[in-house]
Design a protein around this nucleic acid. Structure first.
Lengths: 237, 237
DNA sequence: CGGTGATTTTTGGTATACCAAATTCCAAAT
DNA sequence: ATTTGGAATTTGGTATACCAAAAATCACCG
Protein backbone atom coordinates (compact mmCIF):
# COMPACT_ATOMS: atom_id res chain seq x y z
CA UNK A 1 0.00 0.00 0.00
CA UNK A 2 1.37 3.45 -0.88
CA UNK A 3 -0.30 6.60 0.43
CA UNK A 4 -3.11 6.22 2.97
CA UNK A 5 -5.91 3.73 2.31
CA UNK A 6 -7.35 5.46 -0.73
CA UNK A 7 -7.94 2.11 -2.37
CA UNK A 8 -10.39 0.95 0.25
CA UNK A 9 -12.03 4.37 -0.05
CA UNK A 10 -12.60 3.71 -3.73
CA UNK A 11 -14.16 0.40 -2.92
CA UNK A 12 -16.57 1.87 -0.44
CA UNK A 13 -17.54 4.61 -2.86
CA UNK A 14 -18.80 1.88 -5.10
CA UNK A 15 -16.48 2.93 -7.88
CA UNK A 16 -15.79 -0.76 -8.18
CA UNK A 17 -19.27 -1.65 -9.23
CA UNK A 18 -20.24 -5.11 -10.40
CA UNK A 19 -20.37 -5.55 -14.13
CA UNK A 20 -23.87 -5.38 -15.48
CA UNK A 21 -25.07 -8.25 -17.60
CA UNK A 22 -27.46 -8.12 -20.52
CA UNK A 23 -29.94 -10.06 -18.40
CA UNK A 24 -30.03 -7.30 -15.81
CA UNK A 25 -30.37 -4.60 -18.40
CA UNK A 26 -33.13 -6.51 -20.11
CA UNK A 27 -34.89 -6.93 -16.79
CA UNK A 28 -34.63 -3.19 -16.19
CA UNK A 29 -36.05 -2.43 -19.60
CA UNK A 30 -38.90 -4.86 -19.29
CA UNK A 31 -39.70 -3.70 -15.78
CA UNK A 32 -39.94 -0.16 -17.02
CA UNK A 33 -42.20 -1.21 -19.87
CA UNK A 34 -44.50 -3.01 -17.49
CA UNK A 35 -44.56 -0.32 -14.81
CA UNK A 36 -45.19 2.43 -17.33
CA UNK A 37 -48.11 0.43 -18.62
CA UNK A 38 -46.65 -0.01 -22.11
CA UNK A 39 -47.43 -3.67 -21.66
CA UNK A 40 -50.93 -4.57 -20.57
CA UNK A 41 -51.44 -7.26 -17.94
CA UNK A 42 -51.75 -10.73 -19.46
CA UNK A 43 -49.88 -9.69 -22.58
CA UNK A 44 -47.99 -12.73 -23.73
CA UNK A 45 -44.23 -12.44 -23.99
CA UNK A 46 -42.73 -14.46 -26.83
CA UNK A 47 -39.09 -14.98 -25.99
CA UNK A 48 -37.64 -14.88 -29.50
CA UNK A 49 -39.53 -11.81 -30.58
CA UNK A 50 -38.72 -9.84 -27.47
CA UNK A 51 -35.10 -10.90 -27.52
CA UNK A 52 -34.79 -9.66 -31.06
CA UNK A 53 -36.53 -6.41 -30.17
CA UNK A 54 -34.02 -5.85 -27.38
CA UNK A 55 -31.16 -6.86 -29.63
CA UNK A 56 -30.04 -9.74 -27.42
CA UNK A 57 -30.27 -13.50 -27.57
CA UNK A 58 -32.76 -15.62 -25.72
CA UNK A 59 -30.30 -16.77 -23.07
CA UNK A 60 -29.98 -13.48 -21.17
CA UNK A 61 -33.59 -12.60 -21.89
CA UNK A 62 -34.75 -15.80 -20.24
CA UNK A 63 -32.72 -14.97 -17.15
CA UNK A 64 -34.36 -11.57 -17.10
CA UNK A 65 -37.81 -13.14 -17.28
CA UNK A 66 -36.91 -15.36 -14.37
CA UNK A 67 -35.91 -12.34 -12.31
CA UNK A 68 -39.14 -10.57 -13.14
CA UNK A 69 -41.11 -13.68 -12.29
CA UNK A 70 -39.75 -13.59 -8.76
CA UNK A 71 -40.46 -9.89 -8.59
CA UNK A 72 -44.02 -10.79 -9.46
CA UNK A 73 -44.20 -8.77 -12.68
CA UNK A 74 -44.12 -11.76 -14.99
CA UNK A 75 -45.98 -15.00 -14.53
CA UNK A 76 -45.89 -18.30 -16.36
CA UNK A 77 -48.86 -20.27 -17.63
CA UNK A 78 -49.16 -23.95 -16.75
CA UNK A 79 -47.28 -24.70 -19.94
CA UNK A 80 -44.66 -22.11 -19.05
CA UNK A 81 -45.57 -19.42 -21.49
CA UNK A 82 -44.52 -16.13 -19.95
CA UNK A 83 -46.92 -13.22 -19.77
CA UNK A 84 -47.27 -9.93 -17.96
CA UNK A 85 -48.67 -10.62 -14.51
CA UNK A 86 -52.29 -9.72 -13.85
CA UNK A 87 -52.83 -10.00 -10.10
CA UNK A 88 -56.35 -10.52 -8.85
CA UNK A 89 -57.89 -8.17 -6.33
CA UNK A 90 -57.22 -10.74 -3.64
CA UNK A 91 -53.55 -10.87 -4.54
CA UNK A 92 -53.33 -7.09 -4.61
CA UNK A 93 -54.86 -6.99 -1.15
CA UNK A 94 -52.33 -9.51 0.08
CA UNK A 95 -49.49 -7.52 -1.41
CA UNK A 96 -50.69 -4.42 0.39
CA UNK A 97 -50.86 -6.23 3.71
CA UNK A 98 -47.24 -7.21 3.35
CA UNK A 99 -46.27 -3.79 2.06
CA UNK A 100 -47.96 -2.27 5.10
CA UNK A 101 -46.02 -4.47 7.47
CA UNK A 102 -42.77 -3.64 5.69
CA UNK A 103 -43.39 0.09 5.77
CA UNK A 104 -44.46 -0.05 9.38
CA UNK A 105 -41.20 -1.76 10.26
CA UNK A 106 -39.29 0.74 8.16
CA UNK A 107 -41.00 3.64 9.86
CA UNK A 108 -40.26 2.30 13.32
CA UNK A 109 -36.67 1.70 12.37
CA UNK A 110 -36.33 5.08 10.74
CA UNK A 111 -37.42 6.72 14.00
CA UNK A 112 -34.20 5.36 15.46
CA UNK A 113 -31.86 5.23 12.48
CA UNK A 114 -32.74 8.14 10.25
CA UNK A 115 -30.65 11.29 10.24
CA UNK A 116 -32.40 14.61 10.67
CA UNK A 117 -31.52 15.33 7.06
CA UNK A 118 -33.32 12.22 5.88
CA UNK A 119 -36.41 13.12 7.84
CA UNK A 120 -36.26 16.64 6.48
CA UNK A 121 -36.14 15.21 2.97
CA UNK A 122 -39.23 13.13 3.66
CA UNK A 123 -40.96 16.18 5.05
CA UNK A 124 -40.01 18.13 1.96
CA UNK A 125 -41.57 15.53 -0.32
CA UNK A 126 -44.74 15.79 1.73
CA UNK A 127 -44.68 19.56 1.37
CA UNK A 128 -44.10 19.41 -2.37
CA UNK A 129 -47.13 17.21 -2.76
CA UNK A 130 -49.31 19.48 -0.65
CA UNK A 131 -48.12 22.65 -2.38
CA UNK A 132 -48.63 21.31 -5.85
CA UNK A 133 -51.78 19.38 -5.10
CA UNK A 134 -53.97 21.44 -7.38
CA UNK A 135 -51.49 21.75 -10.27
CA UNK A 136 -49.72 18.41 -10.44
CA UNK A 137 -50.74 15.84 -13.02
CA UNK A 138 -51.84 12.44 -11.82
CA UNK A 139 -48.50 10.97 -12.82
CA UNK A 140 -46.49 13.65 -11.04
CA UNK A 141 -48.52 13.37 -7.87
CA UNK A 142 -48.20 9.61 -8.01
CA UNK A 143 -44.45 9.69 -8.45
CA UNK A 144 -44.02 12.02 -5.50
CA UNK A 145 -46.19 9.71 -3.45
CA UNK A 146 -44.01 6.73 -4.36
CA UNK A 147 -40.86 8.64 -3.50
CA UNK A 148 -42.33 9.70 -0.19
CA UNK A 149 -42.83 6.08 0.79
CA UNK A 150 -39.52 4.89 -0.61
CA UNK A 151 -37.66 7.60 1.27
CA UNK A 152 -39.07 6.39 4.54
CA UNK A 153 -38.04 2.84 3.79
CA UNK A 154 -34.58 3.91 2.72
CA UNK A 155 -34.19 5.83 5.95
CA UNK A 156 -34.40 2.51 7.78
CA UNK A 157 -30.98 1.68 6.32
CA UNK A 158 -32.06 -1.96 6.20
CA UNK A 159 -30.91 -3.09 2.74
CA UNK A 160 -32.92 -6.32 2.52
CA UNK A 161 -35.99 -4.47 3.75
CA UNK A 162 -35.48 -1.83 1.08
CA UNK A 163 -35.15 -4.48 -1.60
CA UNK A 164 -38.19 -6.46 -0.53
CA UNK A 165 -40.20 -3.27 -0.28
CA UNK A 166 -39.09 -2.36 -3.78
CA UNK A 167 -40.41 -5.66 -5.07
CA UNK A 168 -43.80 -5.35 -3.44
CA UNK A 169 -44.02 -1.78 -4.61
CA UNK A 170 -43.38 -2.92 -8.17
CA UNK A 171 -46.11 -5.52 -7.97
CA UNK A 172 -48.54 -2.87 -6.81
CA UNK A 173 -47.31 -0.11 -9.09
CA UNK A 174 -49.94 -0.39 -11.74
CA UNK A 175 -52.88 -0.81 -9.39
CA UNK A 176 -51.75 2.16 -7.33
CA UNK A 177 -51.18 4.26 -10.40
CA UNK A 178 -54.68 3.58 -11.61
CA UNK A 179 -56.13 4.36 -8.22
CA UNK A 180 -54.13 7.59 -8.05
CA UNK A 181 -56.29 8.91 -10.86
CA UNK A 182 -58.98 9.59 -8.27
CA UNK A 183 -58.08 13.22 -7.74
CA UNK A 184 -60.70 13.55 -5.02
CA UNK A 185 -58.61 11.30 -2.81
CA UNK A 186 -55.67 13.69 -2.75
CA UNK A 187 -56.72 15.56 0.38
CA UNK A 188 -57.00 12.32 2.27
CA UNK A 189 -53.55 11.24 1.09
CA UNK A 190 -52.04 14.55 2.08
CA UNK A 191 -53.46 14.55 5.57
CA UNK A 192 -52.24 11.02 6.18
CA UNK A 193 -48.82 11.96 4.90
CA UNK A 194 -48.62 14.81 7.35
CA UNK A 195 -49.56 12.43 10.17
CA UNK A 196 -46.71 10.18 9.12
CA UNK A 197 -44.26 13.03 8.85
CA UNK A 198 -45.23 14.41 12.24
CA UNK A 199 -44.69 11.04 13.88
CA UNK A 200 -41.31 10.69 12.23
CA UNK A 201 -40.19 14.13 13.32
CA UNK A 202 -41.23 13.30 16.86
CA UNK A 203 -39.34 10.03 16.36
CA UNK A 204 -42.36 8.31 17.85
CA UNK A 205 -42.06 4.73 16.65
CA UNK A 206 -45.51 3.60 17.70
CA UNK A 207 -47.24 6.58 16.13
CA UNK A 208 -45.24 6.18 12.94
CA UNK A 209 -46.20 2.54 12.64
CA UNK A 210 -49.84 3.36 13.25
CA UNK A 211 -49.90 6.23 10.75
CA UNK A 212 -48.27 4.11 8.05
CA UNK A 213 -50.62 1.20 8.52
CA UNK A 214 -53.66 3.46 8.51
CA UNK A 215 -52.42 4.99 5.30
CA UNK A 216 -52.00 1.60 3.66
CA UNK A 217 -55.48 0.63 4.78
CA UNK A 218 -56.99 3.42 2.76
CA UNK A 219 -54.83 2.32 -0.14
CA UNK A 220 -56.62 -1.00 -0.01
CA UNK A 221 -60.02 0.63 -0.27
CA UNK A 222 -58.86 2.87 -3.11
CA UNK A 223 -57.57 -0.04 -5.11
CA UNK A 224 -60.68 -2.06 -4.38
CA UNK A 225 -62.88 0.73 -5.66
CA UNK A 226 -60.97 1.02 -8.93
CA UNK A 227 -60.72 -2.70 -9.42
CA UNK A 228 -64.41 -3.24 -8.96
CA UNK A 229 -65.19 -0.39 -11.32
CA UNK A 230 -62.97 -1.96 -13.99
CA UNK A 231 -64.48 -5.37 -13.49
CA UNK A 232 -67.94 -3.94 -13.90
CA UNK A 233 -66.88 -2.14 -17.08
CA UNK A 234 -65.39 -5.32 -18.49
CA UNK A 235 -68.51 -7.35 -17.81
CA UNK A 236 -70.60 -4.87 -19.76
CA UNK A 237 -68.68 -5.49 -23.01
CA UNK B 1 -68.81 -31.60 -19.97
CA UNK B 2 -69.96 -35.06 -18.91
CA UNK B 3 -70.45 -35.96 -15.25
CA UNK B 4 -70.26 -33.13 -12.70
CA UNK B 5 -67.36 -30.70 -12.75
CA UNK B 6 -64.68 -33.26 -11.98
CA UNK B 7 -62.31 -31.56 -14.36
CA UNK B 8 -62.24 -28.33 -12.39
CA UNK B 9 -61.82 -30.48 -9.28
CA UNK B 10 -58.70 -31.97 -10.81
CA UNK B 11 -57.39 -28.49 -11.50
CA UNK B 12 -57.89 -27.35 -7.95
CA UNK B 13 -56.25 -30.50 -6.63
CA UNK B 14 -53.16 -29.35 -8.45
CA UNK B 15 -53.05 -32.46 -10.56
CA UNK B 16 -52.45 -30.06 -13.40
CA UNK B 17 -49.21 -28.78 -12.04
CA UNK B 18 -46.80 -26.68 -14.05
CA UNK B 19 -43.99 -28.61 -15.61
CA UNK B 20 -40.84 -28.46 -13.56
CA UNK B 21 -37.73 -27.31 -15.31
CA UNK B 22 -34.20 -28.46 -14.68
CA UNK B 23 -33.43 -25.00 -13.39
CA UNK B 24 -36.00 -25.34 -10.64
CA UNK B 25 -34.84 -28.78 -9.70
CA UNK B 26 -31.25 -27.63 -9.62
CA UNK B 27 -32.26 -24.72 -7.42
CA UNK B 28 -33.99 -27.12 -5.06
CA UNK B 29 -30.94 -29.35 -4.88
CA UNK B 30 -28.54 -26.51 -4.34
CA UNK B 31 -30.78 -24.93 -1.73
CA UNK B 32 -30.86 -28.18 0.15
CA UNK B 33 -27.09 -28.49 -0.01
CA UNK B 34 -26.66 -25.00 1.34
CA UNK B 35 -29.27 -25.27 4.06
CA UNK B 36 -27.98 -28.61 5.26
CA UNK B 37 -24.55 -27.07 5.52
CA UNK B 38 -22.99 -29.37 2.93
CA UNK B 39 -21.66 -26.19 1.35
CA UNK B 40 -19.84 -23.78 3.62
CA UNK B 41 -20.48 -20.06 3.29
CA UNK B 42 -18.17 -18.42 0.76
CA UNK B 43 -17.56 -21.68 -1.06
CA UNK B 44 -17.09 -20.78 -4.68
CA UNK B 45 -19.47 -22.32 -7.17
CA UNK B 46 -17.87 -23.11 -10.53
CA UNK B 47 -20.70 -23.34 -13.04
CA UNK B 48 -19.27 -26.04 -15.28
CA UNK B 49 -18.23 -28.32 -12.49
CA UNK B 50 -21.51 -28.05 -10.64
CA UNK B 51 -23.53 -28.45 -13.81
CA UNK B 52 -21.68 -31.64 -14.59
CA UNK B 53 -22.17 -32.88 -11.04
CA UNK B 54 -25.90 -32.32 -11.37
CA UNK B 55 -25.92 -33.89 -14.80
CA UNK B 56 -27.26 -30.79 -16.54
CA UNK B 57 -25.83 -28.09 -18.76
CA UNK B 58 -24.83 -24.65 -17.66
CA UNK B 59 -27.91 -22.95 -19.08
CA UNK B 60 -30.45 -24.22 -16.54
CA UNK B 61 -27.85 -24.19 -13.79
CA UNK B 62 -27.24 -20.51 -14.36
CA UNK B 63 -30.94 -19.82 -14.06
CA UNK B 64 -30.95 -21.74 -10.80
CA UNK B 65 -28.08 -19.64 -9.47
CA UNK B 66 -29.99 -16.51 -10.39
CA UNK B 67 -32.99 -17.73 -8.41
CA UNK B 68 -30.84 -18.51 -5.41
CA UNK B 69 -29.17 -15.14 -5.66
CA UNK B 70 -32.53 -13.44 -5.20
CA UNK B 71 -33.31 -15.78 -2.35
CA UNK B 72 -30.09 -14.57 -0.79
CA UNK B 73 -28.39 -17.96 -0.64
CA UNK B 74 -25.92 -17.27 -3.43
CA UNK B 75 -24.01 -14.08 -3.98
CA UNK B 76 -21.80 -12.86 -6.78
CA UNK B 77 -18.36 -11.32 -6.46
CA UNK B 78 -17.62 -8.03 -8.19
CA UNK B 79 -16.43 -10.07 -11.16
CA UNK B 80 -19.56 -12.17 -11.02
CA UNK B 81 -18.13 -15.35 -9.65
CA UNK B 82 -20.91 -17.08 -7.74
CA UNK B 83 -20.35 -18.33 -4.22
CA UNK B 84 -22.39 -19.47 -1.25
CA UNK B 85 -23.62 -16.39 0.60
CA UNK B 86 -21.96 -15.50 3.89
CA UNK B 87 -24.09 -12.82 5.52
CA UNK B 88 -22.47 -10.58 8.09
CA UNK B 89 -23.91 -10.24 11.57
CA UNK B 90 -25.41 -6.93 10.52
CA UNK B 91 -27.16 -8.53 7.59
CA UNK B 92 -28.43 -11.36 9.75
CA UNK B 93 -29.83 -8.81 12.17
CA UNK B 94 -31.56 -7.02 9.34
CA UNK B 95 -33.02 -10.27 8.06
CA UNK B 96 -34.43 -11.01 11.49
CA UNK B 97 -36.04 -7.60 11.73
CA UNK B 98 -37.86 -8.24 8.50
CA UNK B 99 -38.68 -11.80 9.48
CA UNK B 100 -40.12 -10.49 12.73
CA UNK B 101 -42.35 -8.03 10.92
CA UNK B 102 -43.51 -10.75 8.53
CA UNK B 103 -44.31 -13.20 11.29
CA UNK B 104 -46.05 -10.52 13.32
CA UNK B 105 -48.27 -9.76 10.34
CA UNK B 106 -48.85 -13.45 9.78
CA UNK B 107 -49.80 -13.96 13.40
CA UNK B 108 -52.26 -11.07 13.36
CA UNK B 109 -53.78 -12.33 10.17
CA UNK B 110 -53.91 -15.89 11.43
CA UNK B 111 -55.95 -14.74 14.41
CA UNK B 112 -58.65 -13.83 11.90
CA UNK B 113 -58.09 -16.31 9.08
CA UNK B 114 -56.88 -19.52 10.65
CA UNK B 115 -59.21 -22.45 11.16
CA UNK B 116 -59.40 -24.03 14.59
CA UNK B 117 -57.71 -27.07 13.08
CA UNK B 118 -54.75 -25.00 11.95
CA UNK B 119 -54.35 -23.46 15.37
CA UNK B 120 -54.61 -26.89 16.93
CA UNK B 121 -51.83 -28.07 14.63
CA UNK B 122 -49.63 -25.19 15.74
CA UNK B 123 -50.40 -25.98 19.35
CA UNK B 124 -49.50 -29.61 18.74
CA UNK B 125 -46.10 -28.65 17.33
CA UNK B 126 -45.50 -26.58 20.45
CA UNK B 127 -46.46 -29.55 22.61
CA UNK B 128 -44.22 -31.93 20.72
CA UNK B 129 -41.29 -29.63 21.28
CA UNK B 130 -42.02 -29.30 24.99
CA UNK B 131 -42.59 -33.01 25.49
CA UNK B 132 -39.44 -34.05 23.71
CA UNK B 133 -37.29 -31.20 24.95
CA UNK B 134 -34.93 -33.43 26.89
CA UNK B 135 -34.64 -36.20 24.29
CA UNK B 136 -34.65 -34.47 20.94
CA UNK B 137 -31.41 -33.88 19.06
CA UNK B 138 -30.47 -30.34 18.16
CA UNK B 139 -31.52 -30.95 14.58
CA UNK B 140 -34.89 -32.41 15.52
CA UNK B 141 -35.66 -29.61 17.95
CA UNK B 142 -34.60 -27.08 15.33
CA UNK B 143 -36.80 -28.59 12.64
CA UNK B 144 -39.83 -28.57 14.89
CA UNK B 145 -39.10 -24.95 15.73
CA UNK B 146 -38.98 -24.06 12.04
CA UNK B 147 -42.23 -25.91 11.38
CA UNK B 148 -43.87 -24.14 14.30
CA UNK B 149 -43.10 -20.77 12.77
CA UNK B 150 -43.94 -21.81 9.22
CA UNK B 151 -47.30 -23.17 10.33
CA UNK B 152 -48.24 -19.83 11.78
CA UNK B 153 -47.31 -18.06 8.58
CA UNK B 154 -49.18 -20.58 6.46
CA UNK B 155 -52.25 -20.06 8.60
CA UNK B 156 -52.34 -16.48 7.37
CA UNK B 157 -53.35 -17.83 3.95
CA UNK B 158 -51.42 -14.96 2.38
CA UNK B 159 -49.46 -16.63 -0.41
CA UNK B 160 -46.97 -13.83 -1.11
CA UNK B 161 -46.38 -13.45 2.61
CA UNK B 162 -45.69 -17.17 2.90
CA UNK B 163 -43.25 -17.03 0.02
CA UNK B 164 -41.37 -13.99 1.28
CA UNK B 165 -41.21 -15.50 4.74
CA UNK B 166 -39.82 -18.68 3.22
CA UNK B 167 -37.04 -16.70 1.59
CA UNK B 168 -36.02 -14.86 4.72
CA UNK B 169 -36.19 -18.07 6.64
CA UNK B 170 -33.81 -19.67 4.16
CA UNK B 171 -31.34 -16.82 4.51
CA UNK B 172 -31.37 -17.25 8.25
CA UNK B 173 -31.44 -21.03 8.26
CA UNK B 174 -27.80 -21.66 8.89
CA UNK B 175 -27.38 -18.99 11.54
CA UNK B 176 -30.44 -20.20 13.37
CA UNK B 177 -29.36 -23.79 13.14
CA UNK B 178 -26.01 -22.96 14.66
CA UNK B 179 -27.63 -20.96 17.43
CA UNK B 180 -30.06 -23.81 18.11
CA UNK B 181 -27.12 -25.84 19.38
CA UNK B 182 -27.35 -23.87 22.61
CA UNK B 183 -29.42 -26.45 24.46
CA UNK B 184 -29.68 -24.18 27.49
CA UNK B 185 -31.89 -21.84 25.48
CA UNK B 186 -34.59 -24.43 24.98
CA UNK B 187 -36.64 -23.52 28.04
CA UNK B 188 -36.75 -19.94 26.93
CA UNK B 189 -37.87 -20.96 23.45
CA UNK B 190 -40.58 -23.19 24.83
CA UNK B 191 -42.04 -20.60 27.14
CA UNK B 192 -42.16 -18.06 24.34
CA UNK B 193 -43.83 -20.60 22.08
CA UNK B 194 -46.52 -21.19 24.63
CA UNK B 195 -47.13 -17.43 24.86
CA UNK B 196 -47.57 -17.35 21.11
CA UNK B 197 -49.88 -20.35 21.09
CA UNK B 198 -52.00 -18.94 23.89
CA UNK B 199 -52.43 -15.64 22.05
CA UNK B 200 -53.40 -17.47 18.88
CA UNK B 201 -55.95 -19.62 20.65
CA UNK B 202 -57.44 -16.52 22.19
CA UNK B 203 -57.33 -15.04 18.67
CA UNK B 204 -55.86 -11.95 20.24
CA UNK B 205 -54.11 -10.21 17.36
CA UNK B 206 -52.22 -7.67 19.44
CA UNK B 207 -50.92 -10.25 21.88
CA UNK B 208 -49.91 -12.57 19.05
CA UNK B 209 -47.95 -9.82 17.34
CA UNK B 210 -46.23 -8.91 20.58
CA UNK B 211 -45.37 -12.51 21.46
CA UNK B 212 -43.92 -13.17 18.01
CA UNK B 213 -41.81 -10.06 18.01
CA UNK B 214 -40.50 -10.74 21.48
CA UNK B 215 -39.58 -14.22 20.36
CA UNK B 216 -37.66 -12.92 17.37
CA UNK B 217 -35.86 -10.45 19.58
CA UNK B 218 -34.35 -13.24 21.59
CA UNK B 219 -33.43 -14.91 18.32
CA UNK B 220 -31.32 -11.88 17.55
CA UNK B 221 -29.39 -12.17 20.78
CA UNK B 222 -28.91 -15.91 20.30
CA UNK B 223 -27.47 -15.43 16.85
CA UNK B 224 -25.32 -12.57 17.99
CA UNK B 225 -23.84 -14.68 20.76
CA UNK B 226 -22.93 -17.50 18.39
CA UNK B 227 -21.62 -15.21 15.73
CA UNK B 228 -19.33 -13.38 18.09
CA UNK B 229 -18.07 -16.65 19.48
CA UNK B 230 -17.22 -17.86 15.99
CA UNK B 231 -15.52 -14.61 15.07
CA UNK B 232 -13.39 -14.84 18.16
CA UNK B 233 -12.46 -18.44 17.36
CA UNK B 234 -11.50 -17.50 13.81
CA UNK B 235 -9.30 -14.63 14.92
CA UNK B 236 -7.34 -16.98 17.15
CA UNK B 237 -6.22 -19.13 14.21
C1' DC C 1 -72.21 -26.12 -39.99
C1' DG C 2 -69.76 -27.95 -36.05
C1' DG C 3 -66.68 -30.76 -34.27
C1' DT C 4 -62.65 -33.93 -34.45
C1' DG C 5 -58.23 -35.60 -35.57
C1' DA C 6 -53.96 -35.11 -37.99
C1' DT C 7 -50.33 -31.99 -39.51
C1' DT C 8 -47.74 -27.93 -39.50
C1' DT C 9 -45.88 -24.21 -37.03
C1' DT C 10 -44.61 -21.94 -33.06
C1' DT C 11 -42.61 -21.80 -28.59
C1' DG C 12 -40.07 -22.83 -24.52
C1' DG C 13 -36.18 -25.91 -22.55
C1' DT C 14 -31.66 -27.51 -22.96
C1' DA C 15 -27.06 -28.36 -24.72
C1' DT C 16 -23.15 -26.61 -26.82
C1' DA C 17 -19.77 -23.53 -28.97
C1' DC C 18 -17.30 -19.42 -28.70
C1' DC C 19 -15.64 -15.11 -26.79
C1' DA C 20 -13.82 -11.91 -23.58
C1' DA C 21 -12.54 -11.05 -19.03
C1' DA C 22 -10.44 -12.71 -14.97
C1' DT C 23 -7.40 -15.68 -12.67
C1' DT C 24 -3.46 -18.47 -12.24
C1' DC C 25 1.09 -19.67 -13.03
C1' DC C 26 5.73 -19.12 -14.17
C1' DA C 27 9.83 -17.00 -15.42
C1' DA C 28 12.73 -13.01 -15.72
C1' DA C 29 14.38 -8.93 -13.44
C1' DT C 30 15.63 -6.33 -9.41
C1' DA D 1 13.53 -13.53 -1.95
C1' DT D 2 10.12 -10.49 -3.91
C1' DT D 3 7.98 -8.37 -7.45
C1' DT D 4 6.44 -7.81 -12.00
C1' DG D 5 5.04 -8.91 -16.66
C1' DG D 6 2.97 -11.80 -19.60
C1' DA D 7 1.52 -16.28 -21.30
C1' DA D 8 -1.61 -20.06 -20.38
C1' DT D 9 -5.78 -21.44 -18.37
C1' DT D 10 -10.02 -21.06 -16.25
C1' DT D 11 -14.47 -18.97 -15.84
C1' DG D 12 -18.62 -16.46 -16.69
C1' DG D 13 -21.57 -14.23 -20.53
C1' DT D 14 -23.78 -14.73 -24.79
C1' DA D 15 -25.31 -16.63 -29.16
C1' DT D 16 -27.00 -20.40 -31.55
C1' DA D 17 -28.69 -25.01 -32.77
C1' DC D 18 -31.77 -28.57 -31.80
C1' DC D 19 -35.51 -31.01 -29.52
C1' DA D 20 -39.94 -31.93 -27.60
C1' DA D 21 -44.17 -30.11 -26.24
C1' DA D 22 -47.86 -27.05 -27.14
C1' DA D 23 -50.69 -24.35 -30.11
C1' DA D 24 -52.54 -23.20 -34.39
C1' DT D 25 -54.08 -24.62 -38.78
C1' DC D 26 -56.39 -27.34 -41.85
C1' DA D 27 -58.75 -31.12 -43.82
C1' DC D 28 -62.04 -34.46 -43.14
C1' DC D 29 -66.27 -36.45 -41.38
C1' DG D 30 -70.73 -36.57 -39.08
Amino acid sequence: MTQGGWISTLKEEGAVRPRRTLAEEAADNLREFILLGKLEPSTSIPERELAEALGISRTPLREALRLLEIEGLVEYSATRRPRVADPSLQELTQYISVLGALEALAGETACVEATDAEIAEIQKLGHDMAEGSSELTALQFFQLDMRFHSSIVEASRNEPLIETHRQYNARLWRARFLSSQQVDRRDNTLSQHSDITAALIARDAKATRRALRDHLKSTISNITRIHEARDAAQTED
